[in-house]
Design a protein around this nucleic acid. Structure first.
Length: 402
DNA sequence: TCTGGGGTCCTAGGACCC
DNA sequence: TCTGGGGTCCTAGGACCC
């Protein structure tokens, strides 16, 4: 039996959710109906468009461009800052509403998910009618609109939900692929980004149909092992299942664009220290230990590079993560101005079996970790101000990370 | 007044082992 | 002393997604 998959996607998620927030606060108009965008702060060099209203889109404003450039295209535009906590609340509410109807929901990101409709069809009947019903229920109870794509695979459902917006339902069943998907430009195919699309265009492949009919042996020279999957996706073939269990995080990272390009360690280290604390706290919240620590750099030319180390003994200690990050920074830094600095923790494990080495003090380490957990708990109870690292006390930078 | 932040997956090359 | 070769681990970088 053929599967039936829904892909549910919030229209202009960040903008819609901020619109609701503002209306709640007594705003007189709905920013979804005006020239508006969600964006970071230009002064702190985070000035890019994260989401835009339909009217702003009509002016040519695109996600990811600078606020400056958006303003050039659309002088009437107004920018609003993102509010991630509020977004998370709305996201949860959406998935909760949907899980009333089916336990088989795969959360794909903060504003989209897949639902395995085939498994519950006998309860709710015609897919299109049901999609209409939940679409309306979401609008009535949560206040924002979603697009729904209906297809026989996750890939096609995802492609379908993207066809036209907002508040639309599209089907892309297997028998509709040639008519509805083949004519689209290759850039529209999920998984084909800027680099791949450029290569494909050079090879004379411009539409999804071109790729669906392309010679795999020929393309293999350029795309190696991703060739088969890419061609299958162009043909609308995707057997992947809707996975409802929450998959464990593989890594934790935090990075920040610096207020200016920096070259002095006395300016950079307090920030790196604060990031160490933050990622360590996230790690302990999940009751995990990290086996790999990486420091992330971005230079003034926007070139990123990393320097990492695999640890003999996984850690969750703030002190150790900070100490190693500092070492990694000094080893990896190319002595050039830094635009962004960050830390990533990888290969997270549950337990630690200490491999004692001559040079490490086992007891000290355990003490460090125990202390960390106690500090976490105090902060949880009495707030972040209750306790803190003396070295960060008087640093203005610290405020940014709280 | 240029260009966020948090993820995942894949690949390539070197070291090392048998 | 004509320089194998497969497997695995580690590091670094790139592409893609929202």
């Amino acid at each position: 039996m053929k599967r039936i998959i829904f892909h549910i996607d919030v229209n202009n998620a960040f903008l819609s959710w901020t619109a609701l927030d503002l209306l709640n606060q007594g705003y007189q108009y709905d920013i979804r109906e005006s020239y508006a965008a969600i964006g970071g702060d230009e002064k702190s060099r985070r000035g890019i468009v994260l989401a835009k209203s339909p009217k702003a889109k009509k002016c040519g404003v695109v996600t990811g461009e600078t606020l400056y450039s958006a303003r050039m295209k659309c002088p009437a535009i107004r920018f609003y800052p993102p509010n991630y906590q509020w977004y998370q609340k709305n996201s949860k509410a959406l998935f909760q509403l949907l899980s009333k109807y089916s336990p088989d929901i795969e959360v794909a990101s903060i504003d989209e998910c897949y639902l395995d409709y085939g498994k519950v069809q006998n309860l709710y009947g015609d897919p299109y009618e049901f999609a209409k019903k939940i679409q309306k229920e979401i609008l009535d109870t949560l206040g924002f609109t979603v697009n729904i794509g209906i297809a026989n695979s996750k890939l096609c459902a995802k492609m379908a939900s993207d066809f036209s917006k907002p508040y639309k339902i599209h089907t892309l069943y297997n028998h509709e692929i040639q008519k509805k998907m083949y004519p689209l430009p290759i850039d529209d195919l999920f998984g084909v980004g800027k680099q791949t699309s450029q290569k494909l265009h050079k090879l004379g492949i411009h539409t999804i149909s071109d790729l669906a009919h392309a010679d795999a042996t020929y393309l293999y020279r350029y795309f190696k092992n991703s060739t088969t999957k890419m061609i299958e996706w162009a043909q609308g073939i995707d057997d992947s299942e809707v996975v409802s269990e929450q998959v464990e995080r593989k890594g934790i990272s935090q990075s920040t664009t610096l207020p200016k390009d920096m070259t002095r360690t006395d300016e950079i280290f307090p920030i790196l220290h604060a990031i160490s604390e933050n990622v360590a706290i996230s790690l302990r919240k999940k009751n995990k230990y990290a086996s790999v620590i990486a420091v992330i750099f971005k230079d003034k030319f926007f070139k990123s590079y990393t320097h990492q180390r695999k640890l003999n003994n996984p850690t969750c200690s703030t002190n150790e993560i900070w100490k190693i990050s500092k070492e990694l920074f000094l080893e990896g830094w190319k002595q050039e101005p830094i635009r962004l600095i960050g830390i990533r923790l990888d290969q997270l494990t549950d337990h630690v079996t200490y491999q004692t080495s001559l040079f490490e003090d086992f007891e000290d380490k355990k003490e460090d970790e125990t202390l960390d957990f106690v500090v976490d708990e105090i902060k949880q109870k009495f707030g972040d101000q209750a306790i803190g690292k003396a070295s960060l006390k008087d640093n203005k930078m610290k405020r940014k990370f709280e």
